[in-house]
């Protein structure tokens, strides 16, 4: 019995740590991009490296959780759903890392008149991820609250879409940007950042089904 409870505690801690990693990635993502938009490229690169390391740590945790859930024969009824959720959350980390890496590689020139929109878009996308993590935490500990957080994710995702749209319109209508390729580059990065909120939303779609299954 004691052995069993130590195993459950172990997995419980791993899941908590995993969710913390996602939060850390989201916060670093926001700080990194803000650094980039403010031209502090060295600081941006440092944070990008941190995101990269966190992504590897999260991957290890994910594998551990998977292994332990199966080898300890835990939650046989909800195991598939929990693993599904963990895998999907991993996609969010992957998107954050990829977007940061695109900035690092392509070094897009962000025009000053677009800077505030980019910052706002980043903040909103990160808010969606933070609410997603809260929803995931509620799935484990407080199932009745899951939908409240999911609704907030949907709200922020919608907001992100609107800011993305505004940003793209500004980029294409402005006379400050001369080259078409640069306009396209701005559009591309607006879409990439917004993808973070889209990914949070798609995880929520699944999470809401898992939550219904758990409450039945």
């Amino acid at each position: 019995m004691k052995l069993f409870s130590s195993k459950t505690k172990e997995v419980e801690t791993d899941i908590d740590k995993y969710l913390e990693k996602i939060e850390e990635v989201a916060m670093l993502f926001e700080l990194a991009l803000k650094d980039y938009f403010e031209g502090k490229i060295d600081r941006f690169e440092g944070k990008y490296k941190e995101i990269d390391n966190l992504e590897s740590e999260a991957d290890n945790l994910r594998r551990d959780i998977k292994y332990k859930l199966y080898s300890y024969l835990l939650i046989p009824d909800a195991r598939g759903d929990v693993l599904g959720l963990i895998e999907n959350l991993d996609n969010v980390i992957d998107v954050a890392k990829k977007v940061a890496s695109h900035f690092s590689i392509e070094m897009p020139i962000v025009f000053p008149f677009l800077r505030d929109d980019f910052i706002e878009l980043t903040e909103i996308a990160v808010k969606a991820v933070m609410e997603l993590v809260r929803a995931a935490r509620a799935f484990f500990k407080d199932i009745a609250m899951v939908n409240d957080y999911i609704n907030k994710v949907y709200f922020w995702e919608h907001e992100a879409d609107q800011v993305e749209d505004t940003l793209k319109r500004k980029a294409f209508r402005s006379t400050e940007i001369e080259k078409f390729s640069v306009r396209v580059h701005m559009r591309y990065f607006a879409e990439r950042i917004s993808l973070l909120a889209d990914e949070a939303e798609s995880v929520c779609e699944r999470l809401s089904v898992y939550a219904i299954k758990r409450s039945v």
Binding site: M1, F4, S5, T8, K9, V11, E12, I15, L74, I75, A78, V82, F139, F140, K141, D142, I143, A144, R214
Partner: peptide, 17 residues
């Protein structure tokens, strides 16, 4: 369960026992 906010994994162990 709602008031105690037991973690899914711990609830699983408790239920099993």
């Amino acid at each position: 369960i709602r008031k105690a906010k037991i973690h899914l994994i711990r609830l699983d162990g408790l239920t099993r026992n």
